[in-house]
């Protein structure tokens, strides 16, 4: 028997860490690292939930338990890993493009699109 609280709190912690990582970093590649952690937090949550019998928390009330042959949690996790891989692949390609075009991947240094950015011009000639 395993306590499920442990992995659940791990998921919460990773989510918090991932969010911090996305927001607190200036280097775009490191931001993507934070995003990885956030997505992994979701994975941990899915795998944890999949350790419950079918029906999830709501199913615990019933007298009968069974195991879902579709294993939704784990299958979903594999999907998520794949989506994340695709996302990171494209993300890194775009970051490299940004580097080629601007010579930096510091997000604070490339913000002329923002209206409140000092680099923004209201009426380009």
């Amino acid at each position: 028997m395993i306590h499920l609280l442990g992995p659940a709190v791990l998921a919460a912690a990773l989510a918090g860490i991932g969010v911090y990582g996305i927001l607190a970093r200036r280097n775009a590649v490191l931001v993507l690292i934070g995003a990885e952690l956030l997505l992994n937090a979701a994975n941990v949550l899915l795998v944890t939930a999949s350790a419950l019998p079918a029906g999830g928390l709501a199913g615990l009330e019933h007298s009968q338990t069974y195991h879902d042959p579709l294993i939704p949690g784990q299958v979903m996790t594999i999907f998520v890993i794949t989506v994340a891989a695709a996302e990171i692949g494209l993300g890194l390609a775009i970051v490299l493009l940004l580097f080629r075009a601007r010579g930096t991947v510091e997000l604070t240094a490339v913000r002329e699109l923002g209206e409140a950015s000092p680099r923004h011009t209201e009426t380009p000639s």
């Binding site: 997000l107 923002g114 209206e115 409140a116 950015s117």
Partner: peptide, 15 residues
């Protein structure tokens, strides 16, 4: 003013 152009700044709003 909130349109700072800083992409992670926008993510702050989302989160």
């Amino acid at each position: 003013r909130t349109q700072t152009g800083l992409a992670t700044g926008y993510a702050v709003w989302v989160l």
